[in-house]
Design a protein around this nucleic acid. Structure first.
Length: 272
DNA sequence: CTAGGTGCCTGATTGC
DNA sequence: TGCAATCAGGCACCTA
């Protein structure tokens, strides 16, 4: 499933491929993929818009367009954005197809139909409630400490909340908690200063390494970059979907439990 | 405020 | 072998 590293990889790729391109038309094949505005208005407004820049906020892909407009795309479970050469056929899961001024097309493809796009002048109407960017230069251990304070619930569900920290999903929360040697059910407001520091650097390290490997492509999730390439970070996952395998640190079998309705993978010996 | 449940979807997996 | 039920997952939205 695309999380921060996958969206970041895709945004960089799309920025390289699309900056300066003009959207000349759009075909909506699955209307519910368009969350904002209505499909008719969306289709009417897109032609003529120029892509100035492609970036990321949390798990949202953000296209900055001419006329002060922004196209935000959330891939949810199975969404992909690909740039295809002129004349390429649409795949079975294509939901929205944008024509570009040089004949290429940008295809939003989404098997599960959970992904959504939003066309708006104000990014905040869609992304306004998102929390801190975990990789921001000014995100410090004491910021993380403040986010954890006052939360009596478990660590994992808190780290999954996009209004607290933007961009973590099930894969990277499990990996970060393993790297920090913290149990997913540990109460969030009981961490010592050194445990908070450990968690802070674990989150940032795991995300940075995943970006360096161009994200994770798992068997069931089919994340691909803009040219259909898979990522490689799945080779470096320590716990996610590795239940029964030996912990890379101590050899104890990795366990899978359910924490607030999420499959959760951890080492029962390393993570107290 | 937080916790829990449901709906959105479809391919893969499991059960019979 | 075939078919039906179950599961996975992020997030919006609802109720307690």
């Amino acid at each position: 499933m695309p999380e921060l590293p996958e969206v970041e990889t895709l945004a960089r790729h799309l920025q390289h491929l699309l900056a300066g391109a003009v959207l000349t038309g759009v075909e909506v094949l699955w209307p519910r993929s368009i969350a904002l505005p209505g499909v008719a208005e969306f289709t009417r407004r897109v032609p003529g818009l120029r892509i100035e820049r492609v970036g990321r906020r949390g798990k949202f892909l953000v296209f900055s367009l001419s006329d002060g407009l922004n196209l935000l795309v959330h891939l949810r479970m199975s969404g992909q954005v690909r740039v295809e050469p002129p004349g390429a056929a649409l795949d079975a899961y294509a939901r929205v197809a944008f024509d570009l001024d040089d004949g290429r097309r940008m295809i939003f493809s989404d098997m599960r139909k959970f992904g959504r796009m939003y066309l708006t002048t104000d990014v905040c109407t869609v992304a306004g409630k998102l929390g801190r960017e975990p990789l921001a230069d000014d995100f410090t251990p004491s910021d993380l400490r403040a986010l954890l304070a006052g939360h009596k619930g478990a660590l994992k569900p808190l780290l999954l909340r996009q209004d607290v920290l933007a961009g973590l999903g099930n894969i990277y929360v499990d990996e970060a908690l393993f790297a920090a040697r913290l149990h997913p059910r540990r109460k969030a407001d009981t961490l010592s200063r050194s445990e908070v520091r450990r968690l802070h650097s674990a989150i940032r390290q795991v995300l940075a390494q995943a970006i360096a490997s161009r994200g994770s492509t798992l068997r069931d999730a089919r994340y691909r970059d803009a040219e259909g390439q898979a990522g490689e970070f799945q080779e470096h996952l320590c716990v996610y979907q590795r239940q029964g395998e030996a912990c890379v640190r101590c050899g104890t079998p990795i366990e899978r439990i359910v924490v607030s309705q999420r499959g959760t993978h951890f080492c029962p010996r390393c993570q107290r």
